[in-house]
Amino acid sequence: MKKNNQILIIAVLLLFSCKSKIVIIENSENGKMEFNFLEVAQPFNLELTEFHENNFYCFTEGVPYAILIGKTNNTSLPNIVTVLSRCEERNFEVGQNLRIVPEEDPRKNVSLSLIYSVKDTIIRGKKKSWLIGAENSAIWGIAE
């Protein structure tokens, strides 16, 4: 009985000595949650500044893609472009120079939707989410 009282006293002391803070998380969709696609007909060069690999099997229940973000030197394109490369299983290094060949939007040929890659963070108790790469104009393409 004495041992149970000691355990109870220790538990109460631990409970009151912890200074926990309750954070209420509000979900706020402040980031972009859709891609703004460009129509691009000609291949172009891209200096890779960010790469997010495709972690999905190509024949899954959606359209999987790798995300290549980089700087272009083409005056008809924005300075920074997001390239969605369908079923891409290769890995790329930041700083690598790639030749991007534009491709047709794969959703035109299949009834599947995109598998979105989303990041989120908590700032001042509010959860903010955004679609990776949606801050730039996007195209479908493949790196050569």
Rank of each mutant, 00 (worst) to 15 (best):
T75K: 15
G31T: 00
R124W: 00
N109Y: 02
K108E: 07
E144D: 13
L46M: 03
E104A: 04
G31C: 02
L46S: 02
N109R: 06
N27H: 13
F44K: 09
I100C: 09
R107Y: 00
L84P: 03
V118A: 04
V110M: 07
G70N: 02
L131D: 01
I9T: 14
K21P: 00
Q96A: 08
V40K: 13
V94P: 02
K3Y: 14
S76C: 03
G31D: 01
K108F: 08
V110A: 10
K32W: 04
G70E: 04
L14K: 06
G62D: 08
V94G: 04
V12P: 06
K127I: 00
V83R: 02
I142Q: 14
L98A: 04
F56N: 10
T72Q: 13
I69F: 01
C18H: 10
S137D: 15
I139H: 06
K32A: 14
T72D: 12
L114K: 00
N36L: 12
S85C: 09
N36F: 08
G31S: 08
L46V: 01
E93L: 07
W140E: 07
C58W: 04
S20W: 10
I122F: 05
N45R: 12
E89R: 09
T72A: 08
V101W: 06
K19A: 14
A143T: 02
G31F: 07
D105E: 05
R107V: 01
Y57D: 12
N74E: 13
I142S: 15
S20P: 03
G31Y: 02
R90E: 14
S129E: 13
P106S: 06
N74F: 04
S129Y: 08
N27A: 10
V23D: 13
Q6C: 07
S20A: 08
E26D: 14
T82W: 11
L48M: 06
A11Y: 08
S28I: 08
I7V: 02
L98R: 00
N27I: 03
S76V: 05
V83Q: 00
F92S: 05
L8V: 11
E135L: 00
N55V: 07
R99Q: 12
L98P: 03
I100H: 04
N91L: 05
Q96D: 06
I7L: 15
V63C: 01
A41T: 08
E61R: 09
R107G: 03
E135T: 03
G31A: 04
I69G: 03
L8R: 14
N97L: 09
L48R: 05
G133Y: 07
E144M: 07
Q96N: 03
L48W: 11
I25M: 11
K21A: 09
L114Y: 12
